[in-house]
């Protein structure tokens, strides 16, 4: 086990981690169970968190890389998450809800990064977030409503 300092949502956690531990497992271990585990191969986007403002699948990120970086989970953006979540609810696409935290983190990263929100841009940015319940049309409608684009 190796001692590290992990900064999550502006709080420092002094913890011991296994050398090969992935950030997703570390986050869940210290109580951030809002970060869900699904494909565990970096394909589905469900475990997405922000590291220094960039959205990453935490299942594919070695915890040892994280020193001196800042992690934001959905718990750290509660107000924004509620706002986006309401748009998803309004379109009825929250469904089982398992992928929603990851999708919301990606939407926040997209909003910060892109200058122009065309349907093509949105789809290209969010193709890494998979929802097993539905066909994405509703999500796209909700996201467009949230971003106030037609």
């Amino acid at each position: 086990m190796i001692p590290i300092v992990l900064n999550v949502n502006d709080v420092n956690y002094e913890i011991m981690v296994n050398p090969g531990e992935m950030l997703l497992d570390t986050l869940r271990k210290i109580g951030f169970t809002s970060v869900k585990k699904s494909c565990d191969t970096g394909a589905c986007g469900i475990c997405s968190v922000l590291v220094d403002g960039k959205v990453i699948p935490s299942c594919s990120y070695f915890t040892m890389k994280i020193q001196n970086k800042k992690v934001i989970t959905i718990d750290g953006v509660e107000e924004k998450a509620r706002e986006i979540g309401q748009f998803l609810l309004d379109e009825g696409v929250d469904q089982c809800g398992f992928c929603t935290p990851g999708l919301i983190m990606s939407i926040i990263a997209m909003e910060n990064e892109l200058n122009e929100f065309t349907e093509k841009n949105i789809k290209h940015y969010l193709v890494g977030n998979i929802c097993r319940c539905s066909g994405y049309e509703g999500q796209i409608r909700a996201i467009k409503n949230y971003l106030e684009v037609s």
Binding site: A43, G45, V55, S60, Y61, L126, V127, G128
Partner: peptide
């Protein structure tokens, strides 16, 4: 190659 998330890693 993957999604934006993966390409950030």
């Amino acid at each position: 190659i993957g999604g934006v998330q993966l390409r950030n890693i």
